[in-house]
Design a protein around this nucleic acid. Structure first.
Lengths: 334, 334
DNA sequence: CTGAAAGCGCTTACAG
DNA sequence: CTGAAAGCGCTTACAG
C-alpha cells in the first residue's frame, strides 16, 4: 500500500503541508509560480493521491450519497440508480447502493450505517415504516429526497410518477377500443405503497370520468404468487372483464403467463395494458401496449434535488412533490 | 446536524475517551460493570453514533468496497450487484457502485476515485484497457477481484462463467433436435471481451466435437443496431441456418424482433437458444430455451473472495479462475 | 481497571 | 507569498 502523504510531498517540494494543501485545492492566489511547479513535480514523482477520508473528516463532507431502494432487481430501480449515478458522477459524488427489501428494519439499519459513514445525503424509496426516524432527520436538516413513494406527514422533497394519470391513460386507451369492462390487477396492498394506491385511485377515477360503474370484483390485489389463481376466478366468471390493466411489470408477467397457459388470445379475448414499459414489449406477440415511466428523468431529478440541497443546507426549502408524466406507448395488446 | 462525539459521551459518563472507545469496540475484558452501564446510558441519552470516517482514518479501513460494472442496466450486472450487496451487508461492508460504460477512461477515473476514498477493495468487470494500472495495484497488494471478464496477464482472482460450456450446451441441444445447421450471432468483437471470445470458441469446438464443419457465414458479429441487417442477409440466403444461438440477451432481443417482423416461426422455421435466461422466457411464445448463468452465486463468490482477501492481506494468494456452470433450461424454442 | 497522549492525513485561520 | 499550529473524531499502545 502506498503511504505517501501530504507531508511527503511537502518535504519533497521543500515547502509546507499548508502550501501543498492550497495547491491541491487550487487556491493559487498567492502562490509563486516556482512553488507551484515544485509541488507539481513532487506529486508526480511520488505518485501522490490525496486521502479523501482525512479530508472528509476535516471537511465534514464525504462527497458520497446513499441510495436505499426497495429492490435493485426491479428494472425501474436499476434505471433510477443508473441516472443518479451518472448525475452524481458529474459532480464528483459517489453513490452507495442499499437494498432495503421493503423491510423497515433493514431500512433503518441502512440509514444508521449511512449516517455513521457521514454520507452527505440520502435518496430513499421509503418503506413507510420509519416515519419517526425520518422526522428526526428532517429536524436535523439532514438532506433527504424520496423517490417513487411518498410519506404525507413528512416535509421531504419527493419525486413521483403521476400515477393517477398512468392509470387514466390506460383506461382511456381501453375505452377507445370499445372495452368498457375493464379489470385491474395489483400486487398486495398491505403496506399502503404510494404507486399502488394512486394507480388504483386513478383507475377508479378514470372509470368515474366516463360514467362507468366501478365493480368491486374487477379490482383484485394479491401477492404475486397468488395472482394465477386470482386470474382463474376473475377470468373464469361469466361476466369477466374484456380488458385488464396490470399495475406494474410483475403483475403483467403473471397475466401473460396465465393467458399463454390458457390460450387466451390478446387482444381478441382480452385486451391488456401494463404500467412499466418492459424490455420485450416490442417483440412480444402481440406487441404490448404499455405505460412507460420516465425513470431516467426521475432519477436525475432526485439527484439534482439532493445535491442542491446538500450544497445549500441552510436554505429553508419548502418540501415539494415533483410529478413526472407517464407515457402511453400504443402497440398491439389493446 | 448532531455533533455529539466520543468526548461528549466520556464527559457525560464521567470517564475518558479511551474507555468509551474500548466499550464501543467491545473490549470489555477489564471494564467494571458500572462503568459499562454509565457509558451505555450516556450513549443512549445523547443519541451518540460513532463517526466512521474518523475511525476509518485511524484504522485505515473504510469497510467499503467498490464495484465497477460495465453497465448496471444489464440484468446480469444487476443480479451480481445484488448478491455482492447482500453478502457485504452481512459483514457490515458497504458497496459503492460505478458504471464504467465499457470505457477505459471512465474505468480509470473510478479506480482512482475509489482508491482516494480508501475503499478496501474493488470488484471490477474490467474493460481490458487499464492493464498497467491494475498491474500497479497488484504490486501494491491492493485487493481486487475480476468478474465476468479476464485479463490473462494479471494475477487476479477472477469469477467467470464456463462460457465454452454454455455454447456447448446450446449446440448439443440443437443437435438433439436434429439441427446441424447452426448459426451464432454475437455483438461486436472489437475489444476482446472474455465471454464473447469464449462463447464463440465454445460454439466452434462444440461443432468440431460433432464433426460438423464450421461455416464462416454462420458466425456473425455486429454492433447491436446492425444486427437486423445481419439477420436479413444471413436468413435470406438459400442455405441459411436452421438454428441460431444468441450470444447474450441483447442479441436474443434482436433475433426475436427480426423473427416477429418477418413472421419466421420458432422453432418450426428457426430454432433459437439464447445465453442468459431472460425474464420473459417462460411466457414468450414459444417459451424460450435458454442457457442461464448463476449470477447470484457468481456475485457471492466474488464478494467472498474479496472480503477474505481484505481480511488477510498478506497471505500470498495464488490468483485463480473460478468457473461457474451454466445451465440449459429447455423450453420450446428448440 | 482506566486515563493521558500521540497520531491517522488532511484543512484553515492566523501570523509573519 | 508561506509556515506553525490547532483540530476534525476516532484508536491504541503504554503507564499507572
Amino acid at each position: 500500500m502506498k503511504a505517501v502523504t501530504i507531508s511527503d510531498v511537502a518535504k519533497h517540494a521543500g515547502t509546507s503541508k499548508s502550501t501543498v494543501s492550497q495547491f491541491l485545492n487550487e487556491r493559487f492566489d498567492y502562490m509563486r509560480e516556482d512553488t507551484k511547479k515544485r509541488i507539481e513535480v513532487a506529486i508526480e514523482e511520488l505518485g501522490y493521491s490525496p486521502n479523501i477520508v482525512a479530508r472528509s473528516l476535516k471537511m465534514k463532507s464525504t462527497k458520497t450519497i446513499g441510495v436505499i431502494v426497495a429492490n435493485i432487481l426491479h428494472v425501474f430501480s436499476t434505471q433510477v440508480i443508473r441516472s443518479i449515478e451518472d448525475f452524481c458522477n458529474e459532480s464528483n459524488f459517489h453513490v452507495i447502493v442499499c437494498n432495503a427489501d421493503d423491510d423497515p428494519v433493514k431500512e433503518k439499519r441502512y440509514i444508521d450505517m449511512l449516517r455513521a459513514k457521514q454520507v452527505d445525503g440520502i435518496i430513499a424509496f421509503p418503506t413507510g415504516g420509519n416515519v419517526d426516524l425520518y422526522k428526526r432527520l428532517v429536524s436535523e436538516k439532514y438532506p433527504i429526497v424520496f423517490m417513487d413513494r411518498m410519506i404525507p406527514e413528512l416535509p421531504i422533497n419527493t419525486v413521483l410518477l403521476d400515477n393517477e394519470k398512468a392509470s387514466k391513460l390506460a383506461v382511456d386507451a381501453f375505452l377507445q377500443k370499445g372495452h368498457d369492462q375493464i379489470g385491474m390487477i395489483s400486487p398486495s396492498l398491505g403496506k399502503c405503497i404510494t404507486p399502488r394506491m394512486e394507480r388504483i385511485n386513478g383507475y377508479k377515477n378514470a372509470l368515474l370520468d366516463h360514467q362507468i360503474p366501478f365493480k368491486q370484483e374487477y379490482l383484485v390485489s394479491a401477492e404475486i404468487p397468488h395472482i394465477q389463481s386470482v386470474l382463474e376466478t376473475m377470468l373464469g366468471s361469466p361476466n369477466r372483464p374484456q380488458a385488464l390493466l396490470a399495475l406494474n411489470d410483475r403483475v403483467l408477467f403473471e397475466i401473460l403467463k396465465y393467458t399463454k397457459e390458457h390460450q387466451i388470445r390478446i387482444p381478441e379475448d382480452l385486451a391488456v395494458i401494463g404500467i412499466d414499459d418492459v424490455s420485450f414489449a416490442n417483440f412480444y406477440s402481440p406487441a404490448l401496449t404499455t405505460v412507460a415511466q420516465p425513470a431516467f428523468e426521475m432519477g436525475k431529478k432526485a439527484a439534482e434535488l439532493l445535491l442542491t440541497r446538500i450544497s445549500n443546507k441552510e436554505s429553508e426549502v419548502e418540501a415539494e412533490i415533483f410529478r413526472f408524466e407517464p407515457q402511453l406507448i400504443k402497440r398491439s395488446s389493446c
